[in-house]
Write a protein that binds this DNA or RNA. Sequence first.
DNA 1: CCCAATTTGTTCGTATGTATC
DNA 2: AGATACATACGAACAAATTGG
Lengths: 260, 260
Amino acid sequence: MPPATTRSESASAGRLSRPQRVAEAIKQWVMEEGWQPGHRLPSETELMARFAMAKGTIREAIRLLEAQGLVRSRTGPGGGVFVHRVSEPRAVALLSNYFYFADLSIDDIYQLRRTLEPELAASLAGRLDEEQLARLQAAIAESAPPAAGAHDEAARHAASLRFHAVLAGMSDNPLLGFVIRFLAEMLGEVTVARGLHSPTDPELWETGLAYQSRLVSELRAGNAEAARQVLHEHMENAHRLMKRQEAKVIKRFLHDRGTG
Amino acid sequence: MPPATTRSESASAGRLSRPQRVAEAIKQWVMEEGWQPGHRLPSETELMARFAMAKGTIREAIRLLEAQGLVRSRTGPGGGVFVHRVSEPRAVALLSNYFYFADLSIDDIYQLRRTLEPELAASLAGRLDEEQLARLQAAIAESAPPAAGAHDEAARHAASLRFHAVLAGMSDNPLLGFVIRFLAEMLGEVTVARGLHSPTDPELWETGLAYQSRLVSELRAGNAEAARQVLHEHMENAHRLMKRQEAKVIKRFLHDRGTG
DNA sequence: CCCAATTTGTTCGTATGTATC
DNA sequence: AGATACATACGAACAAATTGG
């Protein structure tokens, strides 16, 4: 009795495959029961019985949930399939897929960055303890060059983005924190993809570091509007810097090809 | 010879399951080859041969990709597994999962809305043609009550959010459009989940509609800063309105429970 | 309209890997 | 170390859907 397609069932369920229907049913089930991360779902054998389907079908359904980051499975006794809280890295990765074909521009990303980062700064002013401020200082130190030479440009750029990620992590607004970290991630991907890592103008770079230091001061002092303004200028500066790099890359590209 | 765990393979690949490794390999493969949406992947049989794995394993890998919205499969001749562009609804759904356990507040959502929506308005001023402006007018009309009575409150609220979704769709910045539509979606989920749909104060509601109309005027006139300001005030107004509803719900809740 | 080919979809039985006790 | 409970994986067969003759 393999498929055993009850006609009434296939009519009501639309044209979803069986694993998809099972996955949806389990999702619904978890929400209705209010199961929290860590809760163990019935074993594959029990699910087979409950949904009257073969092991392979159940397993495919579980893979569907697993890819969404909603469950994790472990082998062995006491093992099984467990409700899992979607991790931020996974959420970022899933969302990155959406923009894979969108080819975002530097301007697109900065339109959000220059709007949201100042808002974040303002909302954090006067709300950070010394330990948090110290972590920000440490992040700044990491992106500063050990000597004055242009050492590992890509690593420094990544460290600079990490400062913003650390700052975002201090927000009590999970939505704001997520979006800002996602923007930093996308910015990293775009710059890497376009090879925008030629040695930076040292002067502009120093200016960027100065902004970050000033920001920490204003955050400590609790000046919300000053912090907003500093980060606003910092974003304008960073945007200009990236556009300049972009222009260099385009120029080099045109030169190599001899277009004209 | 079931699992046939080649030791060299399992050592280099870490502790990912085989379907996970296959899914990653396929993903990498697609990126390297630059395959675009619509491109057909090798058939299950070919993939079985290429990865030297059983049908079930390959199918689980494909389910992993399918859940991410990266792939779609069709049966029959000419069928197969096809590279697929992640749809926005799916991206929204996947991201919603991440915030399922986060319990966002109205304030969280509005901190982003009141920052991003004015930016959107400013960037659209003077850039919309008459057809687009007409679509915005139509969206406003939908959320206006047929008579003066409080008819279907939930539907009206949904229509109001749709205005913002339509507006977001007119941005040429896919990132900005996505985030704003996602915020509207989350706002809808939160309000539904908390039952924040009791009859609205008609005066405040009318004010909201007036803001939307004024916005369209300013967009047509091309006044970027005026448009920004209108949407800023609109967001403040909407936020106040929702907080008032929230307060009502809490009050009713306390009364029902008799807490004191 | 039916038949054949192609490809995914599903089932069943069996064996292996893994973690707990 | 052995027993147990669970996911993981294989292989062979069959079902369903779609396309074309």
